[in-house]
Design a protein around this nucleic acid. Sequence first.
DNA 1: TTATAAATATGTAATGATTACAAACTTAGA
DNA 2: TCTAAGTTTGTAATCATTACATATTTATAA
Lengths: 135, 135
Amino acid sequence: MDFVGHLTAHNIKPSLQRIKIYEYLHENRAHPTVETIYSDLVDEIPTLSKTTVYNTLKLFIDNGIASTVTIEDNEVRYDAIMDEHAHFKCDSCGNVYDIEMDISTIKFKKINSFKVETTNIYLKGKCNKCLTNKN
Amino acid sequence: MDFVGHLTAHNIKPSLQRIKIYEYLHENRAHPTVETIYSDLVDEIPTLSKTTVYNTLKLFIDNGIASTVTIEDNEVRYDAIMDEHAHFKCDSCGNVYDIEMDISTIKFKKINSFKVETTNIYLKGKCNKCLTNKN
DNA sequence: TTATAAATATGTAATGATTACAAACTTAGA
DNA sequence: TCTAAGTTTGTAATCATTACATATTTATAA
Ligand SMILES: [Mn+2]
Ligand SMILES: [Mn+2]
Ligand SMILES: [Zn+2]
Ligand SMILES: [Zn+2]
């Protein structure tokens, strides 16, 4: 994938930090937090600042190439996959998984004349692996 | 509604603070934050502490009579309505509305063998009122 | 190339929400 | 009434996020 081109196409000048943060987010599908992104990238970019991570993620969101995953009330995670999908968090291992779904299949009892712009679906429970490993 | 009975039935001793906080949450369907709950109730209970509001809400959640609404990554709201329903936040006026829905109608493309325990659906956009008032 | 301005990144300080904790108060039972 | 357990309170600590000033890099023009 052409990360530089993708950033440029969304009016984001491709600085080293921006490329690396975007690349990390796109490759790492675990929906990392700012802390995780920072601590994983600071090895590769020793001068990296946590403020830059915050600023860059905000820029990505404003320009439509990333979004937040607020499945827990005490941690903000980030996602570079913009195709519509739901999220599942295992309350045993803590992993957050992508769940494929077609949001248009959701049926509301009363459709108010509200104009819906974004939809987020968050599921919680026990993942496959944790169900199996349970002795 | 019998608030004292409801608390008691969920193993919560009905202190004055607990009754008032639960009553407020149940009557006020706007999904208030801790700050809102505290500042609205401190007039009636002058000795009320914000710590008590936090402790009490945690107790309600642990005992299954309240839940959090994390539709925004920078504010935690609370809800005493435990019947399954979705939430809609108007990004114009900021109100959070309840949306009736039957969660079982959601169709996932791949049903992993994950065990889903809770489902949260968050919508954002423009509410009825804001769409009409727009000149 | 060199000078200058704009854009970007950095480090530190400030803010704000939440939690930890110890002391004060209240309640229920002996 | 006495005592212990449960509850509430106020303050301090923690932690994530933002504000802001400075430093660095990049782009542009002379
Ligand atoms: Mn995702
Ligand atoms: Mn609700
Ligand atoms: Zn798991
Ligand atoms: Zn509105």
